[in-house]
């Protein structure tokens, strides 16, 4: 009794179920980027485009160049002696390594959250308002509005609303990191770079920040470097795998984690590395 039906075109029905999303705008683009530290080439001919309102994860073993690349987007590498870059990095179609670009202006557009929570030794309020104050904004009500909004956006408001004058250093690690994100949001950047933002946090705080990223990507574009592959899987839309200064593979996170095209990627994400 053979009863198998010939499946005509199940893929057709499948495609019908997919919603067609409008193409997103490219916000970050790197063209043939080479980075050197002295004679050491840290990045080799990197080409990548990152879309607006997405979360992109950079993964790869230590020293693969992912952090270096991330820091090219807000030129935080500028202070490293012997650092040099070739090729072009464009943000919002503007070449950011042009001589006439004011780095301070760039960094208002491209915020950054670091590995270890690094609040300033100031009050919670002053931490969040810092980015605005250094722009010369003194309007009290404006500052207050922004601080409150930023703290609400990172779901910290309810926890700290009665103690805005308290030192930020008194907060827990997870709260500090959310404060650091709020501090970045207050400046209203387009892009938020995150350099292993949860590697110093406990699992609950990590989960909170991951959830936060889903909210934030509605308004911001997030690029995150992470050592935690599961984290990249959970939170990112696209994943880029770096190895020894090469961009080995870049694609939809689902594809990278279920069917990587390159053997090296597969070896890394399955933990069979080297």
């Amino acid at each position: 009794m053979v009863e198998t039906m010939t499946i005509k075109e199940p893929m057709d029905a499948l495609v019908d179920n997919l919603q067609v999303e409008p193409p997103k705008k490219t916000l970050i683009e790197a063209r043939n980027v080479d980075v050197f530290y002295g004679n050491f080439q840290a990045l080799k001919n990197i080409n990548i485009t990152i879309e607006e309102n997405s979360v992109t994860a950079f993964i790869g073993p230590s020293g693969c160049g992912k952090s270096t690349f991330l820091r090219c987007f807000n030129r935080m590498n500028d202070y490293i002696d012997e650092f040099s870059i070739k090729g072009e990095v464009l943000i919002d179609s503007k070449k950011i390594y042009w001589r006439n670009v004011a780095v301070e202006e760039l960094r208002k557009e491209v915020g950054m959250v670091f590995q270890k929570p690094n609040p300033f030794p100031k009050s919670i309020f002053d931490n969040v308002a810092y980015g605005l104050k250094i722009q010369g904004i003194k309007d009290k009500t404006f500052l207050e509005e922004r601080v409150v909004k930023s703290l609400k956006d990172v779901a910290l408001w309810d926890e700290v609303k009665d103690e805005l004058k308290k030192s930020a250093l008194a907060l827990s690690g997870g709260q500090q990191q959310r404060l650091c994100i709020a501090r970045t949001l207050a400046v209203k950047p387009k892009i938020i770079l995150m350099d292993e933002p949860t590697s110093a946090l406990d699992p609950i705080s990590t989960a909170k920040i991951e959830e936060l990223m889903f909210e934030l990507k509605k308004e911001y574009t997030i690029v995150i470097v992470t050592h935690n592959m599961q984290q990249a899987g959970r939170i990112s839309d696209k994943t880029a795998f770096f190895y020894m200064g090469d961009l080995v593979e870049y694609g939809e996170t689902k594809q990278i984690f279920t069917n990587p095209k390159k053997e090296r990627t597969q070896n890394y994400i399955t933990g069979r590395f080297g």
Binding site: M5, I7, P10, M11, L14, N17, G233, K254
Partner: peptide, 27 residues
């Protein structure tokens, strides 16, 4: 019934794919 069968098969593939993604991405 036969026409419906195609949809059922497609849904199975859909669920399979989603399950694979969830296992791979969210552990």
């Amino acid at each position: 019934i036969n026409a419906n069968e195609n949809r059922v098969n497609a849904m199975e593939l859909n669920i399979d794919r989603d399950v694979e993604n969830i296992l791979a991405l969210y552990s």
